[in-house]
Design a protein around this nucleic acid. Structure first.
Lengths: 218, 218
DNA sequence: ACGTCACAGTGACCGCCGTCACATACCGAT
DNA sequence: ATCGGTATGTGACGGCGGTCACTGTGACGT
């Protein structure tokens, strides 16, 4: 599971100062380049974190889950956000003004501890991602690694066969792996034919985790 | 410049508890997968931070400069290092045992503040790197971005023409960009011929930063 | 039932770049 | 000067995957 901020430490603070809002799917919480005026706390729903070029190409770095602090490091550093965040589902988001957050941080050692943990975890994940991106040349390999990470993040039973929910489009997967939509289609076809995968509606069946893992060369 | 930890906050602590050692070039400070028993502080020299596959392929994520805390997030989380670190020059490195560091952190709010800043900066850089890797398909583009980052990190005068020192081999550059040595060679040749670059010994001359930047599509 | 729209599968083509192979060039040690 | 090792330039070739173009399919509204 992606690290989730333990909100208990922030509770009193949040109760005093936060504003809160529900965003419909597809709406943008903030965009890359924006000044980090407030910390965003994702209370419910999932959100897509992505960057894009001037020429429309976009890449998704991660999917944020409830409890995450969005743009934490940008807020701390006072530098512009590097990513845009878009709600994928109706999402409740709390806001804490940057200055309020910083003074709170200074006062609460417990909050500092939590922030350190959250940042470390974020950085750790990010390093893993860089590693994955760099070391796997082929798209099938990257795809396999992505699926493995899904399995690890899910509460799948310990068996060798696993089912997980896949509600991302091929396009989105492509944007996560730096590959085109068509290539993802083909990769899935091939793996399907090879028996490593089976698609049933929105459910992805993996008959053998072992085989998947050896595809991922992990 | 890569963020440098302000060692003043740690000074008293370091003075009591640290051990210190000089590593010759090529020696390994720690390897990916190792348990994070101690925090490493790079006092002098530069170090290569890299990961590698079982099959010998390696990638360099960054070059550490004096003052940096190595493996900070792994130490905090207590998870294995994700990267190996190798001295590129004779390097003096201080060590602080994990437990000592953690208790110190708990006691000193100032140190917490510094660690938060360092982690944020690391994460910020890492995000930028992911962005760069993902958004640029072609190697020339990635290369241009790398050089731009070198220029920004250097103290180059504000002019449009710039000289910087390049003491990495093509092989190493390739490992930073996820490209082969030969490709780097060819890219440099091409850019040279196109007049975007000129190599004189170990000095890289960039006649026009503007042209370089537009190559990088930034 | 039908049109619309987003998503998905598949073929054709071709350019980038990894790989193999070999020719230099450089540099320090003897 | 000579030699060995490491770094670099360049050609040939082939494969992966991006792009274009089209078709198939399911969901949803009318």
């Amino acid at each position: 599971m992606p690290s989730v901020f333990d909100t208990s430490a922030l509770a009193t603070f949040v109760n005093c100062k936060h504003t809160s809002r529900v965003y419909p799917p597809g709406s943008i919480l903030f965009s890359e380049g924006d000044a980090p005026n407030a910390l965003h706390i994702l209370d419910s729903g999932r959100a897509k974190m992505f960057g894009s070029t001037s020429r429309g190409k976009t890449f998704i770095t991660k999917i944020a889950h409830p409890g995450e602090l969005l743009g934490l490091n940008a807020v701390i550093l006072g530098k512009p956000y590097l990513l845009s965040v878009e709600a994928m589902e109706p999402s409740r988001v709390s806001h804490v003004l940057r200055d309020d957050f910083l003074t709170f941080l200074r006062k609460s050692p417990e909050a500092s501890r939590q922030v350190i943990l959250q940042l470390s975890a974020n950085y750790y994940d990010s390093q893993r991602e860089v590693r994955t991106l760099n070391l796997s040349s082929s798209v099938p390999e990257k795809f396999a690694r992505l699926v493995v990470s899904w399995v690890e993040d899910s509460d799948a039973g310990g068996g060798d066969a696993v089912w997980i929910n896949m509600d991302l489009t091929h396009e989105q997967i492509g944007q996560m792996l730096g590959a085109s939509r068509e290539t993802i289609s083909r990769v899935i076809s091939t793996l399907s034919r090879a028996g490593v995968l089976a698609i049933k509606g929105h459910v992805l069946e993996i008959p053998s985790l072992v085989r998947l893992r050896e595809m991922a060369k992990l």
